[in-house]
């Protein structure tokens, strides 16, 4: 009995070791993959239409979900914010609350999460299916580098789209807050905008939000193209890669957000 127990423990330790080993290996592969993308980016920028195409697929086609979610989140912020602020008699600060929470946090984070599930998953699916149907191998055999031709444009398409989507998300969110706060509830319009302008600093709040969304864009796009490229070339393999893209992206976004926030807004 005891022997069986100790065997189980050894087996557990062994499986943990195996998991650590393989994840470190994957991490190393991902890092090398990132370097390769950067190395072959020159080639793909010379064919700009490839990247433009990917901006269309990951950026333009995410517009609807980004705008609708941004609008609703802004409206909810307006409602909840008013509810809380009016208890302290400072409902004029509603604009500040809506704008700061959107530009600093919600804009970059929520739009990156949406982007990961809308565009990131489809990038993974696309590349994974190309791999499963031997299209990537075929490309390589035809002396066309798949990283330059397929991976790098998708990566850059995502990196370029992400900050624009985050800005759109924040902007429409502020508009949503305005709709609920000013138009619906009747907060003073002048106070709404002027307090907002007085408290939101471009460099500090807006710019930091853009920097965040850029970092998230790099992370999500890298995870998406890597999971696609690394997918097991079967139907289940691709579907579990898509799942990993969404899960890892979400975790990466939230963890990076914590790190970036603590650097950007520390001690202030």
């Amino acid at each position: 009995m005891a022997e069986k127990g100790s065997l189980a423990v050894i087996e557990l330790v062994r499986s943990i070791g195996h998991r650590v080993n393989s994840s470190v290996q994957r991490l190393g592969f991902a890092a090398r993959f990132f370097v390769m993308i950067l190395v072959y980016s020159g080639q793909s920028f010379r064919r700009l239409h490839l990247t433009i195409r990917e901006i269309y697929f990951s950026g333009f086609q995410s517009l609807l979900i980004i705008l609708v979610s941004g609008l609703f989140i802004g409206m909810v912020l307006g409602m909840q914010g008013y509810e809380t602020l009016q208890r302290y008699g400072s409902s004029e600060a509603l604009g500040v609350l809506v704008a700061l929470s959107l530009t600093r946090e919600l804009g970059p984070v929520v739009s990156a999460l949406l982007f990961a599930s809308r565009a990131g998953s489809s990038i993974t699916a696309e590349i994974g299916l190309m791999k499963a149907t031997e299209q990537l191998t075929a490309m390589d055999m035809m002396a066309v580098n798949p990283i330059a031709r397929v991976v790098a444009p998708r990566f850059w398409g995502g990196v370029i789209s992400m900050p624009l989507l985050a800005a759109l998300f924040s902007a429409i969110g502020v508009f949503g807050g305005y709709l609920v706060g000013v138009v619906l509830i009747g907060v003073d319009e002048g106070a709404f905008w002027s307090q907002m302008q007085g408290s939101v600093d471009f460099r500090f709040d807006v710019w930091n939000g853009i920097v965040k969304s850029f970092v998230f864009g790099v992370a999500v796009s890298l995870i998406a193209v890597f999971e696609g490229y690394d997918a097991t070339p079967t139907a289940e393999g691709v579907s579990s890669s898509i799942k990993r893209t969404v899960v890892y992206s979400a975790l990466a976004i939230l963890a990076l957000d914590f790190v970036l926030t603590s650097f950007m807004f520390r001690g202030l």
């Binding site: 299916l129 190309m130 149907t133 031997e134 299209q135 191998t137 075929a138 035809m142």
Partner: peptide
Amino acid sequence: MLFQFGALFT
């Protein structure tokens, strides 16, 4: 090279 299932770019 011709691949097993063609591997056309879909």
